[in-house]
């Protein structure tokens, strides 16, 4: 029996929740904190969310969602358009490979995996930016970004776990 359009719409909207949560968190972390110095400590929320949702619900959070997240990151930074898009899509690529083995991993293992995935992707982003600007960029920035993002991972991941249990509890929702 074919699903009614209401059911299809419900499933469609449910599948957009991870992207909506990611956008909401990104907006929240873009709010002015009135300090240039503190900007270095701003965590890369998009990175955490993309990693989490690709690992846990890869079938609803794929390359297109990562593309949208990267586009928003590019517009809300002065980095060239496309750099964050490429970085976010690389996370999807790397996480998709690891998801085969780590989808049901414990929270701690997921965090450990994020430490590796985050480091690889931020390092690649750093390389892309240096290639683009053809100049040396201070490695401290990547380390600050990496450390704060790693520290923020539990908070953002727990929020995502709550959203996942509340709205997307099943392994697959009537695709």
């Amino acid at each position: 029996m074919r699903d009614s359009w209401q059911e299809r719409l419900r499933v469609f909207l449910l599948h957009r929740i991870p992207l909506a949560v990611t956008f909401a968190l990104m907006f929240l972390f873009c709010m002015p904190i009135n300090s240039l110095q503190q900007n270095y400590f701003r965590p890369l929320i998009g990175l955490i969310c993309v990693y989490y949702w690709v690992l846990k619900r890869g079938y609803i959070f794929g390359y297109f969602s990562a593309f949208c997240v990267g586009l928003l990151m590019d517009v809300y930074s002065s980095s060239p358009l496309g750099i964050n898009i490429l970085t976010m899509m690389l996370i999807v690529f790397i996480t998709n490979i690891s998801a085969r083995y780590f989808q049901n991993a414990s929270f701690g293992l997921g965090w450990l995996l994020f430490c590796i995935v985050g480091l690889v992707t931020l390092f690649l982003k750093w390389l892309f930016l240096m290639l683009y600007f053809k100049s040396w960029l201070q490695p401290q920035e990547i380390l600050f970004a990496y450390c704060t993002t790693i520290m923020f991972y539990p908070f953002v991941a727990y929020l995502n776990v709550w959203v996942q249990n509340k709205f997307l509890p099943q392994e697959r929702i009537n695709e």
Binding site: C30, P32, R42, Y76, S77, S78, N84, I142, A145
Partner: peptide, 15 residues
């Protein structure tokens, strides 16, 4: 009025 700051550690911008 400033309404947003950079969402990225690699860049320094305001909206």
């Amino acid at each position: 009025k400033i309404i947003a700051e950079s969402g990225d550690n690699f860049t320094n911008m305001l909206l």
